[in-house]
Amino acid sequence: MPRIPLEDNFADVINKTQRGRKISDADLAAKAGITAEELAAVKGGEIRENTLLALAPALQLGRNSLLAMARKEWYPEQPIFPRGFAMFNTPFEDMTVNSYLVWDKKTKLAAAFDTGASADSMLDTVASEGLTLRYVFITHTHDDHIADLDRVAATNAEIWASELEPVERPGAKTFQENAHFHLGELSIKTLFTWGHSPGMTTFYVTGLAWPLAIVGDSIFASSMGGSPTHFEMQLRNNQQKILKLPADTVIAGGHGPLTTLKQEKQHNPFFAR
Score class of each variant (00 low, 15 high):
Asn98Arg: 12
Ala32Asp: 14
Glu168Trp: 01
Asp8Ser: 10
Leu131Thr: 03
Gln18Thr: 12
Ile214Leu: 10
Glu168Ile: 11
Arg19Asp: 14
Gly225Thr: 02
Ala58Arg: 00
Glu73Ser: 15
Leu149Lys: 02
Arg21Thr: 14
Asp120Trp: 11
Ile219Cys: 14
Ala221Thr: 01
Ser162Cys: 06
Ser128Lys: 14
Ala247Tyr: 05
Gly226Leu: 02
Pro228Ala: 09
Ala117His: 15
Phe203Ile: 03
Lys262Tyr: 06
Asp120Cys: 01
Ser99Asn: 14
Ala40Leu: 05
Pro57Cys: 04
Leu66Glu: 05
His145Phe: 08
Trp210Cys: 05
Ala68Gln: 12
Ala119Gln: 01
Gln234His: 08
His142Ala: 14
Ala247Ile: 07
Lys173Ala: 05
Val13Arg: 06
Phe85Gln: 04
Ala26His: 11
Pro166Val: 05
Leu258Arg: 05
Pro82Ala: 00
Val167Asp: 05
Pro246Gly: 01
Arg83Asn: 11
Gln263Ser: 08
Tyr135Asn: 10
Glu158Arg: 14
Ile47Thr: 14
Lys173Asn: 11
Pro166Gln: 00
Glu38Gln: 15
Gly171Gln: 01
Gly256Pro: 09
Val205Phe: 13
Asn89Ser: 15
Thr35Gln: 04
Arg63Ile: 11
Tyr75Gln: 08
Arg236Ser: 13
Gly195Trp: 03
Asp217Arg: 01
Leu109Tyr: 09
Lys108Trp: 06
Thr96Ala: 15
Ala153Pro: 00
Asn238Ala: 14
Lys16Val: 12
Gly33Asn: 06
Ala68Tyr: 02
Ala68Ser: 15
Ser118Met: 07
Leu235His: 03
Gly195Thr: 12
Arg71Gln: 15
Ile146Ser: 08
Ala172Tyr: 02
Ala172Lys: 02
Gly216His: 03
Asn237Leu: 09
Phe85His: 07
Met87Tyr: 12
Ala154Phe: 01
Ile146Phe: 03
Met122Cys: 09
Glu129Asp: 01
Leu61Cys: 09
Asp150Tyr: 11
Arg3Asn: 07
Ile80Arg: 15
Val42Ser: 00
Gly253Cys: 11
Asp150Cys: 00
Ala111Phe: 04
Thr51Leu: 06
Asp148Phe: 00
Phe137His: 06
Phe92Lys: 12
Ala157Gly: 07
